[in-house]
Simulated scan of single mutants.
Amino acid sequence: MTSDVIPEGVGRTAIGVARVRALESARTDRLFEDPYAAAFVAAALDGPPPAPRTDVSPAMILLAHHLVIRTRFFDDYLTAAGRAGCTQVVVPAAGLDTRAFRLDWPAGTKVFELDMPAVLGFKERVLAEQGAQAPVARTTIAVDLREDWAGPLVEAGFDPAARTVWLVEGLLVYLGAEEAAALLDTIDSLSAPGSRLALTHGSKDRRRAGASQVVAGAEHAAELAPLVAMWRGGLDEDPVGWLARRGWRAERHDRAELAVGYGRPADYVTSQRSLVTAER
């Protein structure tokens, strides 16, 4: 029987992300609106979300800013991919993502969300309590992404011959190099020509491409120690080159430039290019 309590470990990080999205959604100048984020936080805490803190460390602030910018960027990217003919959307490690409910999808779009059973159990309970209804076909698939997940995805109605947009957000850093490569290999094998991919590539090793000021700050913030302890580094090479060898046209995007474009401060001292998109 699937639990409806958010699990510890990586599952709990989804609550932190939901809290950031709830706070952003409450702003008058918000970059996006997630109508269910606050409900997830309240359900996890068994009470109303706490008020914004005033004693937040610089590392926490930087991480929150990063999450807001990447959420808006991926919102726009997925919406554009749908309008360009990607009729399927697949989100491995979907966590508490609610894009199936809150984005403007073309008619006929199918959204597939994959995650651990306990995460999906909690998510579905809260969405049901909120009366959430996705405007498009939405399928959840309980899997461990370190094992075979292509089979369950196809069995659930995914069509490898149809154009797909994939979102791998905040996942790779929690995987080892071989696991990250295996996940991307599976995505590659299931992607028809014209498919698109968006991912975050963050490395614990600051000498590697993708290492960022967010990672560096988190490593020295005591409140983020449990999060950092779960990071395993992800893909051990630049994903742009990795994807290019497999026939994808990939590029990195600078978060500071994106922030300025969205009317937010460019609070990154150095170039932060951990957001990657690609098209086959």
Rank of each mutant, 00 (worst) to 15 (best):
D75T: 09
S274T: 11
E251T: 15
S195M: 04
T164D: 02
V91Y: 02
I141K: 07
A132C: 14
E169H: 02
P152E: 06
V260Y: 09
E279D: 06
D159K: 13
A142L: 11
R245H: 09
T200Q: 07
V240W: 01
I61R: 10
A37L: 11
L175S: 02
R163Q: 07
L67S: 09
R102F: 01
T200H: 04
T54E: 08
G82E: 03
D238F: 15
W105Y: 12
T109P: 03
L78Y: 00
K123C: 08
W242Y: 13
V269P: 00
V90T: 04
R146I: 06
E33R: 14
L127N: 05
D46R: 15
L199F: 12
V90D: 01
T140Y: 10
A222G: 04
L31Q: 07
Q272T: 14
A142V: 13
E129H: 14
Y268T: 01
G47M: 12
A93F: 04
P135K: 14
G121W: 15
R264K: 09
V168W: 01
Y268Q: 05
F122D: 09
A192R: 05
V20N: 00
R246L: 05
R12W: 14
L78H: 00
L96N: 09
V5W: 15
T109M: 14
G47K: 15
D144A: 05
C86T: 06
A278I: 02
A198K: 02
G261E: 13
R83E: 09
W166Y: 05
W242A: 00
R280P: 02
G9W: 07
S189M: 02
D159H: 12
C86W: 00
R53D: 07
V260F: 04
G108Q: 12
T164M: 03
V89Y: 14
E24H: 01
E24R: 00
S25L: 11
T98I: 10
A81V: 08
W149I: 03
A225I: 09
T13D: 04
G210D: 01
G261K: 14
A64Y: 09
C86Q: 04
P239Y: 12
S191H: 04
L114K: 10
R27Y: 11
M1S: 09
V215C: 06
G176M: 05
E251H: 15
L183R: 02
A44E: 05
G210H: 00
R125I: 15
A100R: 02
V119F: 13
A216T: 13
L145T: 04
A94Q: 02
V90Q: 04
F73D: 03
M116C: 10
Q213K: 02
S57I: 01
E124R: 15
G202A: 05
D159V: 05
G247W: 15
A161N: 11
A84H: 07
